[in-house]
């Protein structure tokens, strides 16, 4: 009996000490960690649009964020889109309520300051106040619309998919006709040397320039990448002026309709990311079409 108590006490003390150490570290590191993630997110946003050291960000590039919520009122389920409205940046957000068939239900103004809209707590409570007391409001996802010279230049959508072990977070950029501009991996825990290769340019750049029609039916094939394509994909290894504008266009055209070549030894991760992108694009295009139709029919003065 005495021994049992000793063992139980010993284990308890060890667990509590370990928990305390981890907890204290978490408290001290969570803020800088969030900041790093935010910086990383922003960097990836510009990367995926193709802006880097060689191609600077245009001065009039504007990003508008649209948030999607699921609203449950009694037995009815609705989608709520929080969209920026007005010509100037500082004019505020409106809520568009849409039913599950894509029909317009309601249009309300959100009582929230534009600089607070990125804070999830403030945003959710503003939407709750606008919808009315009895509804449950759950945040689903968001996307960005990039505008250059007052024209839509790209959609940016952060998305997730199930990888080999845990989720793979990635960021997709689509042009206004829903063709893929680029893909960046935000976070993943695939195995180094195998699944982690999804981060490499030779894999993720294969998605660049794929048309919406192609992405809808894209599959992974277990074949090595042709040598000329491999050289073209690894853009960071290019020498100055390695490819001229025409050559880049010609290469993109040549492999426009090819499927995705799997990573050697990591077929599951390759398929997971490819399917994730396929599903994310399909869903996004459906939603954005519904949203655009409503905005056009109801003549809402959205900013994007």
């Amino acid at each position: 009996m005495k021994e049992m108590i000793k063992i139980v006490l010993g284990l308890c003390v060890t667990c509590i000490t370990a928990a305390c150490i981890m907890g204290v570290t978490f408290i001290f590191t969570s803020d800088p960690k969030k900041k790093n993630e935010h910086i990383n997110f922003e960097k990836n946003m510009f990367n995926v649009l193709g802006y880097n050291e060689n191609r600077s960000i245009p001065a009039d590039l504007k990003l508008y964020s649209i948030f999607r919520y699921i609203i449950i009122q009694g037995d009815n389920q609705y989608l709520g889109y929080a969209v920026p409205v007005g010509e100037k940046d500082s004019s505020g957000y409106d809520l568009l309520q849409v039913d599950t068939n894509g029909n317009f239900v309601d249009h309300k103004h959100l009582d929230i300051k534009p600089e607070k809209v990125m804070e999830e707590g403030d945003r959710t409570s503003a939407i709750k106040a606008a919808v009315g007391g009895a509804a449950t409001v759950t945040y689903a996802d968001m996307f960005f619309v990039a505008k250059v010279e007052n024209k839509r230049s790209a959609f940016l959508l952060p998305a997730e998919t199930i990888g080999f072990k845990t989720t793979i977070g990635f960021m997709l950029a689509l042009d206004p006709l829903y063709n893929v501009i680029g893909v960046e991996i935000l976070e993943h825990e695939e195995d180094p040397g195998l699944g982690a290769e999804i981060e490499q340019e030779y894999f993720k750049n294969q998605f660049q320039g794929k048309s919406f029609e192609k992405v809808k039916s894209i599959v992974v094939i277990k074949q090595p990448i042709p040598d000329d394509y491999l050289k073209f994909l690894e853009k960071k290894k290019w020498r100055q002026g390695e490819y001229s504008e025409q050559e880049i266009k010609a290469m993109q055209q040549k492999y426009q309709d090819s499927d995705i070549n799997a990573i050697t030894g990591a077929t599951i991760s390759s398929v997971a990311l490819t399917n994730g992108i396929k599903v994310a694009v399909k869903k996004f295009v459906y939603r954005v079409k519904v949203l655009d139709t409503i905005i056009m029919n109801k003549q809402i003065a959205v900013a994007f």
């Binding site: 370990a18 981890m22 570290t25 001290f28 590191t29 969570s30 803020d31 800088p32 960690k33 790093n36």
Partner: peptide, 14 residues
């Protein structure tokens, strides 16, 4: 597990 978590958190933050 404690060491690994602590190192993981510190590295990711700083």
């Amino acid at each position: 597990a404690t060491y690994v978590t602590v190192i993981d958190l510190i590295l990711s933050a700083y």
